[in-house]
Computed example of a mutant assay.
Amino acid sequence: MRNWRAKTAAVAVVSALALVTACGSDDNGSSDNGNGGGNDNAGNSSEEGADGSGLSGTITGAGASFPDPLFQEWIAEYTQNVEPDVTINYQSVGSGAGVEQFLGQSVEFGSSEEYLSDEALAEAESGRCEAVQFPVVFGAVVIAFNDPALDGLVLDAETIAKIYDREITNYNDDAIADLNPDFDLPDQEILPVHRSDSSGTTFVFTNFLSHEVSDWESKYGAKKEIEWAEGTLGGDGNQGVAQGVQQSPGGIGYVNQSFALEAGLPVAHVVNEDGEAIAPTLEATSAASEEAEVPENFQFTINDIGGEGYPIAGTNWIFTYTCDYDENTADIIKGFWTWAMESDRADELAEELGYAPLGAELKERVLVEIEKTNSGS
């Protein structure tokens, strides 16, 4: 597996340069190519790619940090070994900012762990044309700890909710002890760490709590951004939460599994709908994803996970438009996401990082949806 964090930093520099280029004026003072994507490179690039496919140019996407480790791996594989004349910049700015940039037409595609609502779809159509949204991968949101001795600590939804509501403030609380009779729990104050930005990971986390805990639903709800209880610590992006947990004695935080793996953080086993304490493994995430009921419009959440499934599981969606891309840009968008759905190598990279690829039947549905990009309908 590549050092994706080092690569992320490098891509971020390229992204910044690409945006400067996209936003800069030409010799006549013009700064907008009329394509709504905020990036002139794709439309002005040469027609022929190095492999004869005709794909050549640059596209930019923005959104969730949840899939960023995987997206950087996919991008590197695709642009180095499949389409070497294509450049894809993905900015890990959080789901909320990604949706805003997509609706504001400053990027070619957006990304989030919460699907576009009917209201957001109407906003997209009023400003441009119909939006296309499709899922590309499943992943787990894990509960990570600062203390290695807590690896495998069992928590349920009620206990997690009370920790983040500051009703439970010490690891030796009776509620935690009851779930972990074999643990020697420390007399340690708990410091909950949360996302400070508008976040799809927060949506997945709070959706789980809202679905399982009525008090959480009434007080906080399921959102990308909420008003957290006093005595909690905010971090920017999944990486910021992981760092906050690492640097804070007593720290506990919710992050995408790949960030916990990369940081070597100990994680909780979370009780699912059948009362089973489940470790956040790839197999457990796959089991959860198989229980998802995916409607025709792809607007869904993953709830009521039992069996061997890990209960805090989420989906990443990609957003594109049905019009206004130049043909080359549209071909790059469709080419990359089609490769991500069809390539065995793309699935291998996802699994290495702890993400669960879509099932074969769902992939076929997604491939049809991808083709709606720039279709005019």
Rank of each mutant, 00 (worst) to 15 (best):
M1C: 14
N3Q: 11
N3S: 11
V11T: 06
A12P: 10
V13K: 06
V13W: 06
A22D: 13
G24H: 12
N35Y: 15
G49P: 15
D51P: 13
L55V: 05
T60I: 13
S65N: 15
F71G: 02
F71P: 13
E73A: 09
I75E: 07
E77P: 14
Y78N: 02
V86Y: 09
S92P: 14
V93P: 09
V93A: 01
Q101R: 04
F102P: 15
S106K: 08
F109R: 00
S111H: 12
S112T: 05
E114D: 08
D118E: 02
L121S: 03
A124H: 09
E125D: 10
S126E: 04
S126D: 05
V132Y: 04
V132F: 04
F134K: 02
V136S: 02
V136G: 01
A140M: 03
V142G: 12
A157W: 08
A157E: 02
I160R: 00
I163H: 10
R166L: 01
D173V: 01
D173M: 01
F183N: 08
D184I: 07
D187T: 04
Q188Y: 03
E189P: 15
E189V: 15
L191W: 08
S198W: 14
S199E: 09
F203I: 04
F205A: 14
N207A: 06
H211T: 12
D215I: 08
W216I: 06
E217I: 05
S218V: 08
Y220Q: 04
G221V: 11
G221D: 12
A222F: 10
K223F: 13
I226W: 10
G237W: 14
Q239F: 15
Q243Y: 14
S248G: 07
P249F: 00
G253W: 11
G253F: 12
F259H: 08
A260W: 11
G264K: 00
P266R: 00
P266Q: 00
H269V: 14
E276P: 09
E276C: 01
A279P: 13
L282D: 05
T285H: 05
A287V: 01
A288V: 02
A288D: 04
A292D: 06
E293W: 13
V294R: 03
Q299T: 15
I302Y: 04
N303D: 15
G306I: 13
G314I: 04
T315P: 15
T320N: 00
T320A: 01
T320F: 01
T322E: 11
C323Y: 09
I333C: 06
G335P: 11
F336G: 01
W337D: 03
E342K: 14
D344C: 03
A346Y: 03
D347C: 06
E351S: 08
E352D: 12
L353N: 00
P357G: 00
L358Y: 08
G359A: 03
E361Y: 09
E361P: 14
E364W: 11
R365M: 09
V366A: 01
E369C: 05
E369D: 04
I370Q: 00
I370T: 02
